[in-house]
Design a protein around this nucleic acid. Structure first.
Lengths: 118, 118
DNA sequence: TAGACTGTGTACTACATAGTACACATAATG
DNA sequence: CATTATGTGTACTATGTAGTACACAGTCTA
């Protein structure tokens, strides 16, 4: 039941629209700096998801996690990519390790690293 | 002193060449399925690094870690990208957490996850 | 009911990516 | 010394990415 990028954005925008009429395709498009017809096509999956920069602006305007939005677009934030590319073997290892861990284990791991003495 | 992708590949290939004359630009290019002139340009940094697929074949032929090669090209293996995109918030968090950890801490972390009970 | 605003269709485009094709001079080899 | 192999220069190209520009019909509003 993988939500597509377009559906996700449309739903998010329409939810916002219920309480704020300025969240129309046209106005959101203008705010993030693209043509309304383009955003319309993106939302309906008629074209591929936008660039990383555009997705991030969309994340700001719709007040949602850009990493999630990027992930739905099959992309990865440049800053994360850089962190990985600085120590590829180490981080690649780690990511492959956690692939099969359940969510709660990863959460625990993140927490321990944050306030543990590593 | 960041080694460039081209320099790294050229050095690797020339090292191999010392003990195996078949590691010429031409023959390696043929083995990985690209034009010799293209590989030549790649090695001299005259063009951007090749695609992920080509880099991986190069990694096989030169018997070197593809993740490192990809990283030097500023790219990230598709399989890693997929792992991240499946749980973007969780994994993004983790990666940002480990950004400032020293290598040995990350190594320890990987080891603990591997044989710990997570 | 006129004007503004809405979503969307069609057509087009600039730039990047990831190479190919071939020619050429030089170096190595049998 | 003829041929084979080698590295590289020049020119070209197919496909993908990330959109723009504008028109149009329907809807809402003052």
């Amino acid at each position: 039941m993988d939500t597509s990028f377009g559906d996700y954005v449309r739903t998010l925008r329409e939810e916002r629209r219920e309480s704020d009429r300025s969240f129309s395709v046209r106005q959101v498009a203008t705010r993030i700096g693209v043509e309304p017809s383009y955003l319309s096509k993106v939302e309906r999956g008629q074209v591929a998801p936008p660039s990383e920069a555009t997705i991030k602006r969309l994340g700001e305007v719709l007040d949602t996690d850009p990493d999630v939005l990027l992930a739905l677009a099959g992309k990865l934030s440049t800053d994360l990519k850089e962190i990985i590319c600085k120590r590829p073997q180490l981080v690649a290892d780690l990511i492959r390790q956690i692939r099969d861990l359940p969510d709660h284990a990863v959460v625990k791991l993140v927490r321990e690293v944050r306030d543990g003495n590593w």
